[in-house]
């Protein structure tokens, strides 16, 4: 089988770098502009929550599923939130079927960290019977089309799906039996964290890199901000390096962009 290589031709690499140094991009965006975003929520009827998000040509869907389970022994009165990402071969010639790769694991972990550290889901409200029964929230990310910046797209889709997710009401009988009711309540989401990824190439910092820019970049950094504008998660990737002053500038750019992106949420 022929495997597509993640190598840009030298001519393309130089072209992308030159454009960025001139302050523009291959898709004629400015360095600090994000591609067009559309979000459709609750499009899967059978799921507790779902979101279909496009960011330019990048497309991800996220499903939220609630299941009854037992809490962790050290947090008996809290529900559980877990994130999983699937990079299916239909999304890109660079993805193959099989066990999750480093890219997939990192994607899920960055999204997970953003949601967890911002305490976006009030896990105490997912508790039904302390130490016995809680709601376990599965957040499944599926990449459908990979044209770069899966992290921001997935994080945004995940919080959009959570915000519109519905939790079945439950009735606990005298002998501790749990009955699921037809009625639902919204999932207790108390913060709306936003992830913003910036890429560095040839000394310049750009936001929302497309796939070719991801190949051309040396390093990237993802900031996740809470609604109050505090930083709650951070992850640097790639073999590029950042100067401390670049990090502080990137921090400000990302912080401003996060509040703009939050307006796309339902």
């Amino acid at each position: 089988m022929v495997k597509a290589e993640k190598i840009l031709s030298e001519i393309e690499q130089n072209y992308i770098e030159k454009l960025v140094n001139k302050g523009t991009r291959i898709d004629e965006r400015s360095l600090d502009s994000v591609r067009e975003i559309t979000i459709k929520t609750n499009f899967i009827e059978k799921a507790n929550g779902s979101a279909d998000l496009t960011l330019g040509n990048t497309r991800v869907i996220v499903g939220v599923k609630l299941e009854l389970g037992t809490p962790f022994p050290d947090m008996p009165d809290e529900g559980v939130v877990t994130v999983n990402a699937e990079l299916a071969p239909i999304a890109s010639p660079f993805f193959e079927s099989g066990p999750p790769t480093e890219v997939g694991i990192e994607l899920a972990r960055v999204v997970d960290r953003g949601l967890r550290q911002s305490k976006a889901v009030d896990t105490k409200k997912l508790c039904i019977l302390e130490g016995e029964k809680v709601w376990i929230t599965f957040i499944d990310i599926y990449a459908l089309d990979h044209d770069g910046n899966l992290i921001d797209a997935s994080a945004l889709a995940a919080i959009a799906a959570l915000l519109t997710a519905k939790m079945p009401k439950v009735k606990v009988t005298k002998d501790k039996e749990i009955q699921l009711l037809e009625e639902t309540t919204p999932l207790p989401v108390v913060d709306r964290p936003i992830a913003v990824t910036l890429a560095k190439m040839n000394g310049a910092i750009i936001v929302d890199p497309c796939l070719k820019e991801e190949f051309a970049m040396r390093g990237r950094i993802t900031f996740t901000f809470t609604e109050k504008g505090n930083l709650c998660a951070l992850q640097k990737g790639g073999i590029g390096t950042f100067k401390p002053s670049e990090l502080l500038n990137a921090f400000e750019t990302a912080r401003n962009l996060a509040s703009q992106l939050r307006q796309f949420l339902p």
Partner: peptide, 10 residues
Amino acid sequence: EVTLLQMDGS
């Protein structure tokens, strides 16, 4: 140059 940077918390 910063070669690794991660963060969790607030």
